[in-house]
Design a protein around this nucleic acid. Structure first.
Lengths: 207, 207
DNA sequence: ACACAAAAGTGACATTTGTCATATGAACTT
DNA sequence: AAGTTCATATGACAAATGTCACTTTTGTGT
């Protein structure tokens, strides 16, 4: 199997080469240390798999990968990261990377390459378990930043379930007028105009 | 590496055993052919990895996997499927399976097992590319079922962006009254009460 | 040109909603 | 006890919303 290793840190790149070549059936065709180099090297050698760091000076591994895949739709790119970096996972997936594994797990790299070679996708230990969470949950909304208290949050929820003021009032044992006042305050703090915008806000930023 | 193979089809199970053992460093400790058997075998042998079919008579692989993982939180289960079966992917992920690969890809199974052994997760060819889509998209709402036309859909969208009737009217070059009439009709068809409920409906069932 | 249906509009009406100024009462300070 | 704060409440008002019966306009086929 012919691969290319791209890593900022030349020492890491070299170590990888050594480890991988010692397996006997992996051949490191070339090594690079930047995103732009990655693109050049890929086109020059067309490796079976490209093993690339995700964080690099200049062009990041993701940008480079995106370009490579745009030109070579079946390019196989396996990303390496130092710690599992939530934010990049989804991005890596969407550009069509074949995997996302941790550098530390050096024993796992060779098998991962094999799997990728066979058309599969590989993700490091904690990466996958985070996926369902990352994809669904919003960044956790900071109510306190807008000075919104407990009861107000409750009301926001109820409004966002489609309840009328009267219904919310009876649900919370408040008078309808009080509910109105609460909502009025919430709208002002969130700079919204009406309850529908509040519901929209809720579904876009909170739940 | 010690594994257990569980497959409905005993011929398949046997073929897998043969293929995998021929690699030299995979040992098939036991074989099963049903979900309930899987649970017994797992507890009896505590394999490094369990390779299991996802569809089986009686208890499915998923149910069995769920129970196994509940009892053994770091059990490593790698699912096999005949064709990539969208609906199960998410479920498999949420119960904490280590992978989801295609049976057909017999060359890929051994490397996948290696990777899983190393704590990684492996997904077959087309599985991962579907993930972002599956997780975000709702089942595709059937407007025609409610007899809701083009323009009505447009209005639903606008309402769900928080626009007022006046704004929608000017956006769509309609009079405000017409917009109201449209909304009135939509609410009736969808059995909703007001625009806020419509927005809620939108975010829960459509987008 | 006529007829017919679909799309768009109107006006009137009751409700709901959002805003605001102000009031009440309970729980704490001091 | 007087003062302060906080949550809750009231009433009045304007604006937005939803409903309905009915009209006008537009487009399409004959």
């Amino acid at each position: 199997m012919n691969i290319i290793v791209v890593d900022d840190d030349k020492l890491v790149a070299l170590s990888l080469k050594t480890i991988l070549e010692s397996t006997g059936h992996i051949n490191v065709m070339a090594m690079g240390s930047s995103g732009s180099e990655a693109i050049t090297l890929y086109n020059e050698h067309k490796p079976d798999v490209m093993l690339m760091d995700i964080r690099m000076d200049g062009m990041t591994g993701l940008e480079a990968g995106e370009k490579i895949i745009a030109e070579n739709p079946d390019a196989k790119i396996l990303y390496l990261t130092t710690f599992s970096d939530d934010e990049y996972i989804v991005k890596a997936l969407t550009i069509g990377a074949k995997g996302y594994i941790l550098k530390q797990d050096f024993e796992g790299i060779a098998p991962a390459l094999e799997a990728v070679m066979n058309g599969q996708s590989v993700f490091g230990e904690k990466v996958i378990s985070k996926l369902p969470v990352i994809m669904n949950s919003k960044p956790e909304f900071d109510f306190s930043k807008y000075d919104i208290g407990e009861k107000e949050q409750e009301i926001i929820t109820l409004v966002s379930e489609g309840l009328s003021n009267k219904e919310i009032a009876s649900e919370l044992f408040l008078s309808e007028g009080t509910v109105r006042n609460y909502i009025s305050g919430i709208l002002e703090k969130l700079e919204l105009r009406d309850r529908t915008q509040l519901a929209v806000f809720y579904y876009t930023n909170i739940k």
